[in-house]
């Protein structure tokens, strides 16, 4: 005996389709809602995020001195550049550079003596040596990477050797003349 809304009649078929569609939709929403916490748990945890930006006091850094701080597990070079460093950097013809960048693009306006860079060679990741190589101005600028011989100038730009890019400048800002926040 076939009733109007039995599974085999047209009305029954659409009701079955509705059931399947709704069940699938509900199931998909549920599955997504369950999957998200698992995936998000792999994102950086709150204590890692808390260390994702640091503040650095620049006042103890004398002119001509370069310090290294740690940020997100990487070394950061902070250099209080000398007049020589800045002049040498500005003299360079930007179009000759492998990774063309003018000196003032790598520092903050009004704080040109401060050079802040990620101290990781852009070739294969070694930490370059400060105040070494052919482009050091004699008072501690310039960097030389001992692993494969990349050489960076007084603005941290790649001049010689296999590295493809200038030393990366992280996101940072000046909170005051003597205090920066990195990240």
């Amino acid at each position: 005996m076939s009733q109007p809304s039995s599974p085999d009649s047209p009305a029954g078929a659409t009701r079955r389709d509705f059931m399947i569609l709704t069940a699938s939709a509900l199931g998909a929403v549920g599955a997504g809602a369950v999957a998200w916490p698992f995936i998000n748990s792999m994102n950086p945890a709150a204590d890692v995020l808390a260390l994702s930006s640091i503040e650095v006091d620049l006042s103890p850094i004398k002119e001509g001195q370069t310090i290294k701080v740690q940020w997100r597990g990487m070394p950061i070079f902070i250099r209080n550049r000398t007049k020589n460093d800045i002049e040498d950097a500005r003299k360079v013809n930007v179009s000759d550079l492998r990774d063309p960048q003018a000196d003032d693009q790598r520092v903050k306006k009004g704080h040109e003596q401060w050079l802040v860079m990620i101290g990781v060679c852009t070739h294969l990741g070694c930490i370059p040596i400060s105040g070494a190589g052919d482009y050091c101005a004699g008072d501690g600028g310039g960097w030389f990477c001992p692993c494969h011989g990349s050489q960076y100038d007084t603005a941290g730009r790649i001049r010689k050797g296999p590295a493809p890019r200038n030393l990366d400048v992280p996101e940072y800002s000046f909170l005051s003349d003597n205090r920066i926040k990195i990240g």
Partner: peptide, 11 residues
């Protein structure tokens, strides 16, 4: 979800 599943099951 459970309510719906129950109705679907009865169906």
């Amino acid at each position: 979800f459970t309510g719906f599943m129950y109705i679907a099951k009865r169906n």
